[in-house]
């Protein structure tokens, strides 16, 4: 047992790295497949969306967090429960619009970009764009149409990574998505 303990570092941390590295390999593969940043962004968002529509189920089962009354509640649950649960970080919720339908998630350290440096000439690549897709997909499954996009990205030299979420409308009829 003592040997075992000496051998394993911090499995939790390294497990996060497994995700980071796999994501990195995926993005690299996409760059090879498309050679066009915008196309890669789109693809990442699409994959994120696919993840989002399924991960919400896992989330609801695990978190057991009850109903949200307004968009502010939603923001809190996303940052304090969802991000904490899956990525181990708690983004700061800020920059609310006066109408309360738009806010930003500020990520101080983004685990997806842990070992990443963007090579020259990829200014329009949103490396972590998968997050937008996940958020959009997940929220859509709970009847919220939300626009999600990156406003600032640490990788591009900004001080902080900022994801902007804008509430568009409540989806009334839950039409099965992806049935096209």
């Amino acid at each position: 047992m003592s040997r075992q303990a000496a051998r394993t570092g911090d499995p939790r941390k390294v497990n996060g790295e497994l995700f980071t590295l796999t994501y990195g390999a995926l993005v690299a593969q996409l760059m090879k497949d498309y050679e066009n940043d915008d196309e890669v962004n789109k693809q990442l968002e699409k994959m994120g969306y696919n993840i989002g529509v399924r991960i919400i189920e896992d989330f609801l089962a695990r978190a057991n967090s009850g109903r949200c009354n307004d968009f502010r509640d939603v923001a809190d649950v996303i940052s304090k429960v969802a991000f904490k649960m899956y990525l181990g970080i708690t983004p700061v919720v800020s920059n609310w619009s006066p109408a309360g339908d738009e806010f930003s998630l500020l990520l101080e350290n983004n685990p997806l970009t842990d070992f990443v440096e963007l090579p020259e000439g990829h200014d329009s690549l949103n490396y972590s764009n998968i997050l937008c897709g996940v958020l959009k997909g997940a929220l859509e499954m709970i009847q919220m149409d939300v626009d999600v996009k990156f406003v600032q990205d640490h990788l591009k030299g900004d001080n902080i990574t900022e994801v902007r979420l804008k509430f568009i409308k409540r989806l009334e009829d839950a039409v099965p998505v992806g049935e096209d």
Binding site: N15, G16, T22, I51, I55, D58, R62, G88
Partner: peptide
């Protein structure tokens, strides 16, 4: 923390 879930979905 359920950090194995994102990895599984990502792999899919």
């Amino acid at each position: 923390m359920a950090d194995e879930v994102p990895f599984e979905f990502l792999h899919m």
